[in-house]
Design a protein around this nucleic acid. Structure first.
Lengths: 332, 332
DNA sequence: TTGTATGCGTTATCAA
DNA sequence: TTGATAACGCATACAA
């Protein structure tokens, strides 16, 4: 470890006061050209690197923002993280990622770690109840993706899961499907519930009843998609299409179908939700609903940055787009 | 924003000196049970939260570690991040992730941001040359995953890409394949070069020459896998198996094959490298070489933590395991 | 065992 | 435009 060179060293080397150096580095005030030259030269020579911790202490901030995800290894969250990084690029801020693993305890723990170490928070998904969220939002700048904070709606970038699902299922109806199975997500998951509701209401739109046997619950993981198909098949319920509540479960379903020699989309159509990175490379490419996670991450982070800068922000609810590929076809 | 309660406030409330409070919070010295009670009570009541920035300043550390990846949204890196988080759990440290996007400029930028804000670094992949890495490693604790720092081999968790590839190709030979195509990775990428070398030497092992037309270069992304298959097919070179240098390209290749009605593994066998999350759900499930990224992340972070604690560490080169699934079969 | 005093590296306040 | 000087919140050497 080399000895650290501080602002004071630079000041001495350049023959000016520390405050002058500080002003130059931060660009907060006008300084004579001559001194600027000297100081910058000294900075070069000494390879001065400002100590951000000290800066943080005096300014009462950490220059970092916290990001709470639920599964950092999933391409779904990954895309958002990319967007967040993009927004942070060129700023002084750095992201600290913590994962809730979809488990309330872990989520609480992660939050615990984050609070006090970051200037603002981006929260994605999770089980944290509205009240806690609101309380948190009182005490520090927070934006969410895919969740709503009661009383702070303008700080929440949400996706209209209901409309997305409803449109998707209507699309299947338009293709002539009448027996559409649904692999739902966990029922304590808002997004999952909303998608289920969209599925129901699309049926209503077409004046159809729903056979309860057609909806099987999964957990948003691939394996549960496979399992759900097995359940569906064993129940001997007729269906010509499957709507998986997310793409990961659709992959699992796809594999299960393949195992049984059921062709997609010739024999059954299969659609998902999210438009995860791999969906384009599923066989056949998956028809799904696109959640623009990259954009959401980008705009959430941008908004948070503004909030940290005491600006007003207004995030909105967006309706995700249908992405038509090849896994759904006209019903036989 | 509420007024912050500091250690001083606690001290006053408890009627003791600040240093006593500090000692109790940090647990660095024995304190009489009575005062401890008082102080802890005061902490509870005031909801005192230590300011980590101040702590960091006085101790000369940041209590965070930097993680440099190349594509945070890829399941490949994601698994490692999960491992890193697992290792950090229960410690005071928090991870700061930055992405190099496989681009030297971005990588340099990311590193720039990280240095000075973190106590140690985990570097995964990337283009940074050995000398720079070594220089960096002189100045701060660094461990790498998948790369070697000249002079600091014990701080590098590496995977024997060469052996992995060679074993994999030999497995194909054992299945009777003699015309094995290779979709290679970028040639400025060490891992890619090593895998190519394994491919070559497996041929040598079986006394076979290589038809240069059989190796097509990709860029580790899905699309390049599709493209490579097109190139291969157009060149009218005969092959009964394809070894893609990573799973992502294998997915692309798989889709291209499907498009042309070529069955896997009946007509051509397809294998990849990495064992990414989705490979198990490819159709058919992909035979590949497993890089234990989760474990690598875990052990790298654990090692870094030890280094930060002035302990010696010794990371090792591991040989990745062949994962036999269904995408490769006996040659016709 | 406890308290006092000092310093970590920076920004901000106030004079000059 | 510049320079002293006082914070920022905590840990620690030293004294008691």
């Amino acid at each position: 470890m080399k000895k650290k060179v501080t602002l004071l060293d630079v000041a001495q080397a350049a023959g000016v006061s520390p405050s002058t150096v500080s002003r130059i580095v931060a660009g907060t005030a006008r300084v004579s050209e001559k001194k600027r030259q000297q100081v910058e030269e000294a900075i070069q020579q000494l390879k001065y690197q400002p100590n951000l911790v000290a800066k943080g202490l005096v300014q009462g901030r950490t220059l970092s923002i916290g990001v709470l995800t639920q599964d950092i290894a999933s391409p779904f969250y990954g895309a958002a993280l990319l967007g967040i990084q993009e927004a942070l690029r060129g700023t002084e801020y750095v992201p600290v990622f913590m994962d809730g693993h979809w488990k309330p305890e872990d989520e609480a723990l992660a939050l615990q770690r984050l609070i006090g170490r970051v200037d603002g928070l981006i929260i994605m998904g999770g089980h944290l109840e509205g009240k806690s969220l609101s309380a948190l939002a009182e005490s520090m700048p927070i934006v969410t993706i895919g969740r709503t904070i009661p009383g702070f709606e303008q700080h929440c970038a949400t996706v209209d899961n209901y409309a997305g699902a409803r449109n998707l299922v209507r699309y299947l109806f338009d293709l002539g499907h009448r027996r559409i199975a649904h692999i739902s997500g966990p029922d304590d998951h808002v997004d999952a519930r909303e998608r289920l509701r969209g599925y129901y209401d699309a049926h209503k739109d077409f004046g159809m009843d729903i056979d309860p046997k057609l909806v099987v619950q999964g957990d948003f993981q691939e394996a549960s998609g496979s399992l759900a198909v097995a359940t569906l098949l064993e129940s001997r319920t007729l269906f010509t299409a499957i709507f998986a509540a997310n793409d990961q479960m659709a992959y699992g379903a796809r594999l299960a179908l393949y195992r049984r020699g059921i062709r997609v989309p010739e024999e059954v159509s299969l659609v998902g939700f999210d438009d995860t990175r791999n969906s384009e490379y599923m066989m056949p490419p998956l028809t799904t609903v696109r959640q623009p996670m990259h954009e959401l991450g980008l705009s959430a982070a941008t908004a948070l940055l503004k909030m940290l800068n005491d600006e007003e922000v207004q995030l909105e609810k967006i309706t995700p787009q249908l992405v038509i590929r090849e896994s759904a076809a006209r019903a036989r």
